[in-house]
Structures are given as structure tokens and as C-alpha cells.
Amino acid sequence: MVGSSLIPFGHWLQNRTFALAIADSAWAYPFVQATHFSGISLWLGTNFAVDISLLGVGNRRQTPAQLSDALFFWNWLGFALAVLGGFLLFSVSAETFVINPAFLVKLGVLVPAALITHIVIQCKIHTWGQTAQTPAAAKRAGSLEVLLWFCVATAAVLIPYGPLVY
């Protein structure tokens, strides 16, 4: 299996003091989960707003570029929180996560693809998003990003259906 070579690393990680502390605490795990979910909410909410704007919706008084600039900091703050919470959740059960097919597809394929799409959009937004009407390439990129993050959420929900993680 693809992730089986990562089992020793997973074993090492989940036996670190911080990972054991989260696993042993009655209240820490839900707080870490809530941090992960709050970060994703901020990340996806701000992504979604810009992607929809790239489709040409709601741009009467604000161009996609202006919206993207206004949300930029909070967008990446959400990402940082999602990664921090996600890493801590992963470290609690790392040994089982590294052999979970849905987790491997999520982190190895879908998240990188969605992240690259997001970065391309942010690099191109000042070209694509100067006016209310956006070019076809911008519409395609916005739709693709919404779809890819939906696929990421799908893979995440399917994680417990693989080898038991919980």
C-alpha cells in the first residue's frame, strides 16, 4: 500500500508529547477539531466569494480584484488555522491516517490540485478581475476551484469509511 512506508513516521509522530496530550485530554480534541473547521470555513468562505465573483455574479459595485484584495489576509489566515488544526488532528492518529486511502487522495492529490488552482487565481485576479465582466478563463478557473474544494470535503468525509481512524 502507498502509505505503508509512512507507518514508522506516523508511529513516531503520534507518540510525541503534544499528540499524546491531545489524545489523552477530554476537551482538547474537540477544540482542535473546531479550530480546523473554523479555519476551513474562513478559507472556503473567502475562496467561494471570490470564485463566484469570477463567474461574473454580484460585481455591480465591486470588481473581483477589489474583493480578492479585501479578503486576502483573512483567506490565508483561514488556511493557516486549517493547516494547524489539521496537522494536530493528523498527529493524534497518524499511524492510521497514513494508510487511509481517502486521506491519501485528499492530501496527496486533491488539496495540492485545489491549492495550485487557488494560487493561479490569486496571481491572475488583477488581470481577470478588473471589471465586472470576467473572461471565460476566469469563469472556468472559478468553477474548477469550487469543484476541487468540494472534492476535498468529500474525501475528508470519506476518511472514516476507510481503515478505522476513530
Partner: peptide
């Protein structure tokens, strides 16, 4: 997915 979009949008 709807929870993420909902909370993220309200947060904006």
C-alpha cells in the same frame, strides 16, 4: 461543505 460556506460567508 454547506457549513463551511455558511460560517465563512457570515464571518466575512
Amino acid at each position: 461543505y454547506s457549513m463551511f460556506v455558511l460560517v465563512g460567508s457570515v464571518a466575512i
